[in-house]
Simulated scan of single mutants.
Amino acid sequence: DDEDDQFFELAKLATGLSEKELDQLKRPDYVTIAQYVHEMSTRPASFFLGEQQETAHDQPVQLLLPLDAAGRTLTELPLEMPALRATKVMKKLATNKQRAEFITAHCTGLMIPDLAGLTVPDWTELQERIDDFLNQPAAFFRNATSK
Rank of each mutant, 00 (worst) to 15 (best):
51 E>A: 07
86 A>I: 01
47 F>Q: 01
48 F>P: 00
64 L>A: 04
107 C>R: 00
97 K>D: 08
7 F>W: 10
91 K>P: 00
107 C>L: 05
88 K>L: 12
44 P>Y: 05
9 E>L: 12
144 A>I: 10
54 E>I: 03
87 T>Y: 04
52 Q>V: 08
37 V>L: 11
62 Q>E: 12
59 Q>K: 14
82 P>T: 07
17 L>A: 12
64 L>C: 02
67 L>V: 05
118 L>W: 06
80 E>T: 13
112 I>M: 11
105 A>F: 02
41 S>I: 01
8 F>W: 15
79 L>W: 00
16 G>I: 06
121 P>K: 06
76 E>V: 00
54 E>Q: 13
28 P>M: 10
58 D>E: 13
50 G>F: 10
124 T>N: 09
82 P>V: 04
132 D>V: 03
142 R>G: 04
43 R>I: 02
34 A>R: 15
18 S>M: 09
97 K>Q: 11
97 K>C: 00
117 G>N: 08
101 E>V: 00
88 K>Q: 08
113 P>C: 07
20 K>C: 02
140 F>D: 08
136 Q>Y: 04
102 F>Y: 15
31 V>L: 14
92 K>G: 14
127 Q>L: 12
140 F>K: 14
90 M>P: 00
79 L>D: 00
92 K>M: 10
126 L>E: 05
125 E>Q: 15
84 L>V: 11
145 T>Q: 15
122 D>V: 01
64 L>I: 09
14 A>V: 04
78 P>N: 05
147 K>C: 03
1 D>P: 03
68 D>S: 11
16 G>C: 08
20 K>W: 05
132 D>R: 05
118 L>Y: 04
15 T>D: 06
29 D>S: 13
86 A>Q: 11
96 N>I: 06
142 R>T: 09
101 E>L: 06
41 S>F: 01
117 G>A: 10
73 T>W: 02
81 M>C: 06
70 A>W: 02
116 A>R: 14
39 E>Q: 12
31 V>E: 15
70 A>E: 12
19 E>R: 12
23 D>F: 05
4 D>L: 14
85 R>Y: 08
140 F>Y: 15
71 G>L: 07
39 E>D: 13
1 D>M: 15
37 V>F: 07
7 F>E: 04
57 H>V: 02
12 K>Y: 03
33 I>K: 02
22 L>S: 05
123 W>S: 10
85 R>G: 05
84 L>T: 10
99 R>L: 09
40 M>A: 11
89 V>M: 06
80 E>V: 12
140 F>I: 02
55 T>W: 03
86 A>V: 03
103 I>T: 03
142 R>I: 06
88 K>F: 04
92 K>P: 00
113 P>E: 10
21 E>K: 13
69 A>T: 07
59 Q>D: 14
22 L>M: 12
89 V>G: 01
147 K>M: 08
65 L>R: 11
127 Q>I: 01
123 W>N: 04
